[in-house]
Design a protein around this nucleic acid. Structure first.
Lengths: 132, 132
DNA sequence: ATAGCTGCAAATGCTTTGCAAGGCC
DNA sequence: GGCCTTGCAAAGCATTTGCAGCTAT
């Protein structure tokens, strides 16, 4: 994807296409599905020769998550992972290495699912398969 | 359960039955399945007229989790929940109120589950059903 | 022009740790 | 007695926030 695509993508989500947002977009959306932390992105940004405040990285990732460009995931780890896969999917999680691997949504099917309590509805079902 | 039972339970897990551990055990295991935070327990301990350092509560909960008396759960929230339900089970999670509700293990069945990558094995499958 | 963004540094909030004093076996 | 625990305070760490200056439209 080129820069213009990211500008359009950002605009489509009511986010001004600032330098920082475009850089993060390309890191996040250029190479398929990723699971990254803010700190990881800080390194990648630095490796590109750009500079960006860590606070901005956090703020941007949270904005992206709010508008649905990312999904945030919390696991055993104390850090938040941001998942650039916007499709419905699940995860393998290796607690030894803290590695996350995507599972396509249709790779898991249920035979039996409980009904939601009282007046509530099911928003989505997240499955984490823990590996050893 | 009476105090002696907790003393035995702790001993069975190679933990010395200190006053603090016995108090926390009774709060955790006397009233069925619970989802608590360290802070919540601090209040309950205080309400009982006992006093206990928050650090000790954290350390004890982590020890309990290590020996398998508790399971720790991280969700959207920034706090760690400790789950006194040791049976295999899943959760409903209401992100509005941050409420967690147990789902018995046999209330969810799979029709299709992916195989673990390369040399790895499945340790367990955690399902979180998000409510709205 | 102006509403929105960014960077910095400071603050926050949960959790862990170091270490001296106390408790269990 | 000796090792394990506790309590306190301080530190740690990921993340958020306040605010002055900058940028996109």
């Amino acid at each position: 994807m080129n820069t213009q695509n990211y500008i359009d993508l950002l605009r489509a989500h009511n986010l001004r296409p600032t330098r920082q947002r475009v850089v993060l977009s390309s890191l996040l959306f250029d190479q398929g599905h990723r699971h990254v932390t803010a700190e990881q992105l800080r390194c990648e940004v630095a490796a590109r020769g750009e500079n960006m405040s860590l606070a901005t990285i956090y703020n941007t990732l949270n904005q992206f998550a709010e508008v649905g460009l990312l999904r945030d995931i919390k696991l055993d780890d104390s850090v938040t992972y941001f998942d650039s896969n916007r499709d419905h999917h699940h995860h393998f999680f290796d607690s030894e290495s803290n590695a996350l691997i995507d599972i396509p949504g249709d790779a898991i099917e249920f035979k039996k699912v409980p009904t939601a309590p009282d007046g509530q509805q099911i928003e989505r079902i997240d499955v984490v398969i823990r590996l050893k």
